[in-house]
Design a protein around this nucleic acid. Structure first.
Lengths: 132, 132
DNA sequence: CACCTCCACCTACATCTGTAGTAGATCTAA
DNA sequence: TTAGATCTACTACAGATGTAGGTGGAGGTG
């Protein structure tokens, strides 16, 4: 089975784990912005569901609290999201790109930068492989 | 209130209406691919819900069948979708762009083309306005 | 007019998502 | 050791989404 489908709230929790490493439910809850923080048990429920989906796992226990960490990587989750999204446009990115540009969310510069960044990353990896 | 939120299936129906103009429930249903066509009443339910959301409206009656047409434009619906989507990435398009490029869904060429197209459209509109 | 077909409407329901309460276990500090 | 804090695990529930059945009525056909 492929990557699990993650909902908005689940993604927020994943984001916290991707950023913060291994955390308790309490820590995840407190990572939410003050003004829009779900109840402890709400977060707990989502954490359990993420566990059920194998997106996260329990790694240890501190006191009586379980500590969770991400199993699914941010990168693969994002990929999944994007594919899902593109499928709404028949898998074609053209209409998406048009709208991104139109709304000022995307310029040639952005793309150039992104490409440069990717190229750079790729080269570094290659170099490292050759050296190692 | 802004644009209504549209679900996947609702979007498929909207797409049919955006493409086909004013249609009956039966026509919308038959526009689905043979192999994955929902029951007539399923489509009907979604059409009613779209009507409830003011995304479409009844324009006339042929025989005893109502004919529906889109009220919300494809363009605004797409915009809404994209904003919704970007919000999952904190409103930043950078990670999205990176993934689009990485997965081969987006190249500099695509962006150039899209920009050219937009510029062209804008000019045409301006010209038309001046003329009219 | 009688009948058959198609449609409108209403109702139902499983699953998913977000939300949270409660009961009982466990830990910790006095 | 005992009371308060904190967690876990379970349960509940409303709204959204996809899916579709059933009933009755409108329209055309012979």
């Amino acid at each position: 089975m492929g990557l699990p489908k993650l909902t908005k709230l689940e993604l927020q929790i994943m984001e916290t784990l991707w950023t913060g490493g291994a955390l308790s439910v309490r820590e995840i809850q407190e990572a939410f912005p003050d003004r829009d923080r779900p109840a402890y048990t709400t977060v707990q429920t989502m954490v359990y569901r993420l566990e059920g989906k194998k997106a996260i796992r329990r790694v240890k226990k501190i006191g009586n609290a379980h500590i969770f960490e991400a199993v699914v990587s941010r990168s693969s989750a994002h990929r999944r999201l994007i594919d899902e999204f593109l499928s709404l446009f028949g898998g074609r990115s053209q209409p998406v790109v048009l709208h991104l540009i139109e709304s000022g969310n995307l310029t040639l510069e952005d793309v150039k930068e992104a490409e440069a960044l990717l190229t750079q990353l790729k080269n570094e990896k290659t170099t490292k492989s050759r050296r190692g």
